[in-house]
């Protein structure tokens, strides 16, 4: 058996708002390919991307907003943006 953390999951992440500005070679059409440990959470993904809690970042996958402890899925299209309260 492989213990948690040994397997890796790949997913494509697209960044919105001002978050993309920190990745110099970011191309929106392609997004970023990210590898996280099996069972990684939304919080761990944000930490990997060096996006801090104070930036109001939101992770969305499969049409849903994830809670910080929700687990990421292999092969998912992930969107990360910042919370906006209305317009």
């Amino acid at each position: 058996m492989t213990s948690k953390g040994h397997l890796r999951m790949k997913m494509s992440v697209k960044l919105f708002g001002t978050l993309r500005e920190r990745f110099l070679d970011y191309r929106h059409q392609d997004g970023i390919e990210v590898e996280v440990p099996d069972g990684a959470t939304a919080k761990e993904l944000l930490s990997l991307l060096k996006i801090s809690e104070s930036e109001g970042a939101v992770v969305a996958m499969e049409g849903r907003i994830l809670k910080r402890d929700d687990k990421m899925q292999q092969g998912a299209q992930v969107y990360v943006f910042q919370a906006i309260h209305g317009g």
Partner: peptide, 24 residues
């Protein structure tokens, strides 16, 4: 504030197009 200080100057309220579509 991340919304008032960062997102609004960069995108304005149009910044909502991505999140709201992402939520279906």
């Amino acid at each position: 504030h991340p919304m008032a200080g960062q997102v609004m100057p960069a995108l304005g309220t149009a910044g909502l197009v991505a999140p709201v579509n992402s939520m279906g």
